[in-house]
Design a protein around this nucleic acid. Sequence first.
DNA 1: ATGAAAGCGCTAACAG
DNA 2: CTGTTAGCGCTTTCAT
Lengths: 338, 338
Amino acid sequence: MTQQKITINEVASAAGVSVTTVSLVLSGKGRISSATVERVNQAITQLGYVRNRSAAALRGGSSGTIGVIVRDLSQRFYAELTAGLSEALEAQGKTVLLTQSGAHGQHLTRCFDSLIAQGVDAVVLGGDARNAAALAPGVPLICASRASYLEGADSLRPDNALGGRMATEFLLRQGHQHIAWLGGCGASLTRAERIGGYCATLIQHGLPFNPEWIIECDESPQAAGTAITRLQQRYPHLTAVIASSPPVALGCCLALLRREHALRQAAVDSNGVQPMALVGFSDELQANLTDPSLTFICNPARAIGRAAAARTLLRLSTPDAPVQHVIMPPQLIGSSGQ
Amino acid sequence: MTQQKITINEVASAAGVSVTTVSLVLSGKGRISSATVERVNQAITQLGYVRNRSAAALRGGSSGTIGVIVRDLSQRFYAELTAGLSEALEAQGKTVLLTQSGAHGQHLTRCFDSLIAQGVDAVVLGGDARNAAALAPGVPLICASRASYLEGADSLRPDNALGGRMATEFLLRQGHQHIAWLGGCGASLTRAERIGGYCATLIQHGLPFNPEWIIECDESPQAAGTAITRLQQRYPHLTAVIASSPPVALGCCLALLRREHALRQAAVDSNGVQPMALVGFSDELQANLTDPSLTFICNPARAIGRAAAARTLLRLSTPDAPVQHVIMPPQLIGSSGQ
DNA sequence: ATGAAAGCGCTAACAG
DNA sequence: CTGTTAGCGCTTTCAT
């Protein structure tokens, strides 16, 4: 179909220079006179030449690819992260090699092997990094996850404690003093960090912190609805709740609306019905579920991806730069923010 | 750190054979005695050899990579699609090169160029395929999008008309006869196909189809709430609504609950208040927003990804297989399904 | 059934 | 500043 084999050789002769010059122009390395650069680029576009990165990689140059490992792209946080990362890397002429290590990270080794075999210039690792330390010696490793990180490698992650603080302060600002925490799994590091922020904020404000107001529950509206109803019965003076995720927040929201219903219908004086306030956590920035009654603290996943891209490029250009750990602030979307 | 340069040469001598044999074993091509295969594989694992795909690609073999182009990974449908695709391809030893063409497909050409430069064995294209026809001659192209496809290339996509039919039939089965359609943009092909299924179903059941019950609106709970309230006022005998997306469904759900409130409080006879039924569309299978009052018709995005992977592998092994177009059924998640 | 040898397209020494 | 040249690790005829 198209002209098959346009190599730097053709480009070189077309531009009346040597292959070295062309190669230098391509990688922007040597000091080539701008006139020559011009001529070469012209030849390149004229011939429709596309550089063969395999050959470049083979010879020792960089492959122009960055490996990414995430557990599963259907997890919002990692999808957003990967989107930001790929966007930023592609803008710099890099290409992303995507691998999924599986829901439990079971394919981590396979991921590293594929990436190494493909000659990636660096690896960005999402998710748990604990046993990834020595899997890819010789290739820069950048960690970008929801909570964990590696001592010796560059890392980016959300400021979960700040998220917990933001949620709590948002509710305090509205006058609430009895705030419950609903949802999430006790083993979650992200959750633990967020709850840390929640507790710290309460204490800073001289409010008592009651561990019985911290409830684990499945990430489903049903489970959340059941849990919050029980919570309200047991602790009637609770006036606000922090939900660990959008489905939990939704479950709370619906349960609360229905409860208001029921109470009003029971002919209780309307004034006696105190509507409960609600804040939820989310992994997507737009969190387009927001509504007057739904406010979210959103992870800056996409921004983390972009930052990881920047860090990766820096690490490639400056291998000796000191290791850096960055934590990025969440964003409040809904009632007051955005 | 680790042993640096283990090439097929080391493997060959370690196994006491020639590089040819090793290469043949690696690609499973030539007829090598199983004894030799055994010996070679042993040497490979012993030395921790990993094949250099760049070299293989350069010499003419396959690179073992499949290129993927999506508009933006933060769109659920494409995140799920990519997850399924990558999962299935990695299980077969392939690696995915991910590129994003941008919200408006503005980087499509750049995507193709990068992928070609990297020597991909095939390209899976998500999103609009119209002007992608001739961008990558010589490389198999597989289309996997929400609606559009290319005549000459293999394609996979959701059965949107069936989705519309499923939503409508679900409501009809519950006895509803006055069903509105809320949300989406008039220019959307996906929406048009779904609405086609909706209309067809109504007609098949001998029900009138009223174009004024099809409302465009922003994909936000607020917009949906406003729209459905207006709709109810204008057409009081509507008893059900189909929502184009989760945020629209949520907005409807909340608005409906509040309206029931209001009516009940206004001391209207409770029996006069007919609760409205609701079905929504979603791009994620778990659609974990489901709740007794929230049912979803979910796109089989992940399954489409897996099917696209299978089709890609088939196309690589059998280049002459006839072009195939596959449409995949959505899934009802919630009240009755699942 | 296996081995020897010729490059694939590119980059990085070295020279000029 | 630019040209010559030697491979990178692998696949693939062509012999054996």
